[in-house]
Each structure stands twice: as structure tokens, then as C-alpha cells.
Amino acid sequence: MLQPQIADEHDTDILILCKPYRMRHTQDEITNETKTAGIWVRGAARARITARGVGDDYVWARVGAVTYVSVYLTPNWAVAEFLAKVALLKDGLRALPRDLLVAGDLNARAIECGMTETNRRGRLLLETAASLYLVVKNTGDIPTYGRPGFGDSIPDVTMTTDRILPRVRQWWVFKRYTASDHQYIASEVAEETKSARRRIQHPPP
């Protein structure tokens, strides 16, 4: 399994996961009922978890001064169901402890995330993000998803509240083999009162 290996190689503290069906470290992993969203907090960082919770399509964990959220929005929903799910997500995020780092497979297209166009789902998600003071952190236009016959896209998005945006020092897409249609994405978050950095990685399966 590549996830633990890559996490070890890059000294990863927190993995934000989407559809983590192959994960087996259930004692440390926070998942929703359908196993489509998960967070794995590793090593010494586990002692810094102060709260956690589960929604229909997301999970969250408060680690230190930051609340990390994993979200998966399936592309199979009809428009009405997608609207209802995003409304529930918005209410859930609004109730969480600040500051937020939200990441996951949102299955939407938006220019702000590196795509060449913004579709209806993308517009709705950007409007929702703006209402929650979330800023897209994606950098560049490297595809995070590619499948023969389906083309390349960037459905995997990272957003943060504007107050912690300056502390997210890097955001990049891994170009190595992942055994998945998705690429691993990693970012580094500086502690609010320390020079040490926390690395967050959200690899889909």
C-alpha cells in the first residue's frame, strides 16, 4: 500500500482522504458511514486532537489550532441532490471551530482551481466557499485526476479560511505513480506559534 509509505517518506502528520476503501488503520482513522471521506492523524499529532466529528459527506478533526475537513462529493448526484448536499455541507462547516482547512474530491470545475472553465457545480461551490470566507489554495493547472477515455481534470481542491492562508506555505501535486486515477496532493502548514511545519496530504485511492 503506497499511502503509508509515501506518508513516511514525507514525514506526513495528517492525511485527508477521499473514498479510502483500502485503508486498514481504523484505530487512527476518522471516517463517515459510507467510507467516502476520512482523516488519518499520525504519530505525535494524534495527541493534539481536541475534537472530531462526522457528517454525511465529510469528516473533521481539530488538531492544534486548525480544524481539518475531508469532503467527498460524488459526481453521480442529480442537480437537486447536489444542491441539497452542498447546503448541508455549508451548515456543517459554519458550525465547526475555526480556522478551517477543507480538502477533498469535489467533482466540480472552476477556473480558480486551475481548470479552463467553471461549471454549475463549480460556481455553487465557489459561492459557498466565499460565504464561509474560504479561499482556494490550489496552485497552477497540473491535473489531479486522469483516466483513459475521460481526460484530465482537477476535481481535488484545497481551501482555507483567509486567516490561516499565509500559514499554508506550499501546495503541490505529486507526479509519481499512485496506483489511482488521482494524484497525491501535499501542502505544508506552519504552526501559529512555532516555526515547525505540519504537512498535510490528501491522496484519494
Rank of each mutant, 00 (worst) to 15 (best):
V71C: 00
R147Q: 09
K137F: 08
T34I: 12
L2E: 11
Q27T: 11
L124A: 14
T193D: 15
P148R: 12
K90Y: 08
R163K: 00
H182Q: 11
M115Q: 11
I185E: 04
S187T: 13
M23G: 04
A78L: 15
T67E: 02
V69S: 05
G146F: 11
G55W: 03
D8L: 07
V173S: 04
D152W: 14
E188V: 14
T36V: 06
T31G: 06
D99W: 05
L125T: 01
G53K: 05
K85Q: 15
P205W: 14
E191N: 12
L126I: 07
K194Q: 10
G114F: 06
A95I: 13
R163C: 05
S153V: 05
W77K: 14
G140K: 07
F150Y: 09
A179K: 12
N32L: 01
G38V: 00
M115S: 07
V157T: 03
L124E: 09
I200W: 06
D28A: 02
G104N: 03
A196V: 12
A110E: 07
M159V: 06
P155Q: 02
E81F: 03
V102F: 01
V189Y: 02
N107T: 04
D57L: 09
I16N: 02
Q3W: 13
L15D: 02
K175F: 13
T128M: 10
V86N: 03
H10N: 09
G149Q: 10
I200T: 13
M1F: 14
Q3C: 13
S70D: 00
E9N: 12
L88Y: 08
A44W: 12
L124M: 11
A129C: 05
I49E: 03
S70V: 00
T128G: 04
L93T: 01
L165M: 10
R199Q: 03
L100Y: 04
V157L: 04
S70L: 01
R109C: 10
A95S: 13
L132S: 01
A37H: 01
A196Y: 12
I30Q: 02
N76K: 10
E192A: 07
D11H: 09
L126F: 07
L126H: 06
R120C: 12
P204G: 08
P20V: 04
M159K: 05
A129D: 04
T178P: 13
S70M: 00
N76D: 09
Y133L: 06
E112A: 10
D8M: 10
V86W: 00
R121M: 04
A51Y: 13
K90Q: 09
G64C: 07
Y58D: 14
M1E: 13
I185G: 06
S180T: 13
S131H: 07
Q3N: 14
P97G: 04
A110Q: 02
I16L: 03
R176A: 15
G43P: 00
R121C: 05
V135L: 09
A108N: 01
Y133A: 11
R109V: 10
P75R: 05
P166E: 03
S187V: 15
H202N: 12
G149E: 06
R98W: 00
Q3F: 11
L96N: 06
R197Y: 14
S180F: 12
N119K: 05
S131L: 08
D181V: 06
G38I: 02
L83S: 14
D152F: 15
D57N: 11
M1N: 09
K137S: 10
L88M: 10
I111R: 07
